[in-house]
């Protein structure tokens, strides 16, 4: 996958998040301030704009993720900004200097995202955050196997993680102030993380379909 094809991946993510804008807003409204749909959709829209421009300028894959991280942060701020910026910047480090991203390394992207978010946010498993998706998804993707299988396992783990947040009491972030009242609600950051991972898988499938003529 070259830089342009990674921009295409970002496009799929941005599209799926735009579709989920209202739904994510409603999830956040129940236990937070209802802006999560906007932050994610606007953030990845900014990523698409900035990375498309960078790819046209000839940025390599590592730089592309750095540009993506900066643009997400500047467009969004909020909690999501630093978290996804760290995720993207970590991916930029992981793939620094590479002209292409091997499909076999795609599951590593999940690991980089999870590490970036974890380092910045310091959320632990069970805190009812997006880490309850990114952590299990990254671990599932680590298991050996063909990339498509690893991504599929990651998505299943992600969905399980998201559903598990329903039974958790938030202990970091805005929802933590609700105490017991956050019980029974899916964490919006977990829900959007699943959308991102599903979009990655969708983009990968699309890419593979195009490659095999």
């Amino acid at each position: 996958m070259d830089s342009h094809q990674i921009v295409d991946l970002f496009r799929v993510i941005a599209r799926r998040l735009a579709e989920a804008r209202a739904e994510l807003g409603a999830l956040d409204g129940a236990i937070g301030d209802a802006d999560h749909g906007n932050s994610m959709a606007d953030g990845f829209a900014a990523v698409v704009r900035a990375s498309a421009e960078a790819a046209t300028r000839g940025s390599d894959v590592g730089d592309l993720f750095v540009v993506a991280g900066r643009s997400f942060l500047n467009a969004v701020g909020a909690t999501t900004g630093p978290l996804y910026a760290s995720a993207l910047l970590r991916a930029g480090q992981r793939f620094a200097g590479q002209k292409t991203l091997a499909i076999a390394d795609l599951p590593d992207l999940l690991a980089a995202f999870a590490a970036g978010i974890s380092d910045r946010g310091k959320a632990r498993p069970g805190d009812k955050t997006m880490m309850d998706v990114w952590g299990p998804a990254a671990r599932a993707a680590e298991q050996p196997g063909p990339p498509r299988d690893r991504m599929a396992r990651a998505l299943r783990a992600a969905e399980d993680g998201r559903d598990a947040t329903r039974t958790m009491v938030a202990s970091v972030g805005r929802a933590a102030r609700l105490g017991e009242r956050s019980l029974g609600h899916v964490d919006p950051g977990a829900a959007s993380a699943v959308i991102v991972i599903a979009a990655l898988q969708e983009g990968l499938a699309h890419h593979l379909a195009q490659d095999r003529p």
Binding site: A34, D35, N38, S39, N74, V76, G77, A78, T79, G81
Partner: peptide, 11 residues
Amino acid sequence: VGNLFASPPPG
């Protein structure tokens, strides 16, 4: 000043 109910970024 950030977006609605969202912290401004570091910029």
